[in-house]
Simulated scan of single mutants.
Amino acid sequence: MPENEEILRRWLKVLNSYGFIKEEANGFTALLKITEHFFETIWSQMEELWNGKLCNKLANEYLLKNIKALSELFSGEINPTHILFPEGKFDYAEALYKDTFIFQYLNTKIAQKIKEFLDATEHIEILELGAGTGATTDNVLPLIKERKNVIYYFSDISYVFLREAQHKYSEFRNIKYMTLNVNNLDLGKKVDIIIANGVLNNAKNIKYTLDKMLEITSEKGKIFIIEQVEESLEMLVSQVFMMKDSSALEEKGGKTFRNTEEWLRLLRDDRIEKIEVFPEKYNIDQRLFILYHK
């Protein structure tokens, strides 16, 4: 498909940087022959290292299905969402956004910071944007279950996610559900905390969405943003086929994701008192940005 040509160009760039291919005047030359046996051996070694440590079996199973379907993904014969949500099931999505080592750390960090805020404030309203399968929600809701002074707004553009959440969180009385589009963020009121996990990178106009988020955040409120900060090989065989905004790619110099410094430049605003970043360093390709409203 023509719209996947940019993904192919990024793959060529990555493969060239790793020394698997060599760029020449008329194209590229393969420098390494990968047989099926070689791939299966390497994949087994990877699973042994990753399973139960960096992620669980389902996350690796999802990646393998994407790898085996790459030709069909590039041609458009297979819809990438059908791999992520087979038969409408959320198992793979939860394995990726909830059960991996990095998301366990980041979602736990959000819950810790929100608990500090809850303990110091009388009444709090929390809005989660693009809540999806509830990977972050699962960490935060137990903190507010018995608190009558807290309202949690679970929002997403998809009715499927909202319907599933209503069933999943039926025991919680202080949660409300709403359809919200981050590209047209009109809440009509202010909230004390906003959570946006993997939302901004997919917004059509990040500056617009961020401005609206700041606009609906109360004074001394907080905004929690989780974003990918490095080009990810795992993403390049999977979710990248769901992220095809060519204008956004141009802004990012043909990359799928901005790095930490590029995000910080985008996030800085006169209405923000300070920004915290977690983890502060280490070779991890996700970051949590906490924006403190003045």
Rank of each mutant, 00 (worst) to 15 (best):
E261G: 11
F257S: 02
D245A: 09
S247I: 08
D285Y: 06
D269Y: 14
E231K: 05
E273S: 13
N283R: 14
I284W: 11
Y282G: 12
R268N: 15
K281P: 01
I275W: 02
E273I: 03
K252A: 11
E251S: 10
E261D: 15
E231Y: 08
E251M: 10
I272N: 00
E262A: 09
K252M: 14
I275V: 11
I290V: 15
K244E: 05
V240E: 02
E273T: 10
R268C: 07
N283Y: 12
L233V: 15
D269P: 07
D245M: 08
G253C: 10
I284E: 04
A248C: 08
T260R: 14
Y292D: 01
T256F: 15
G253A: 09
A248N: 14
L264M: 06
R258N: 10
T256M: 12
E250P: 05
L264F: 04
E227L: 07
F289T: 01
E250M: 09
L249P: 00
E280H: 03
E227M: 08
I272Q: 04
R265V: 13
M235G: 08
T260Q: 14
K255M: 10
V240N: 00
Q286K: 14
E261K: 14
F289G: 00
L233Y: 06
K252T: 05
M242R: 14
E262W: 06
F241R: 02
L264H: 04
R268E: 11
M243P: 00
P279A: 11
L267E: 04
E276G: 09
D245G: 03
M243S: 02
E262I: 06
E227K: 03
E250K: 15
N283K: 15
E251P: 02
T256G: 08
E234G: 14
E251W: 03
Q239F: 09
Y292K: 09
N259Q: 04
E231H: 08
M243T: 03
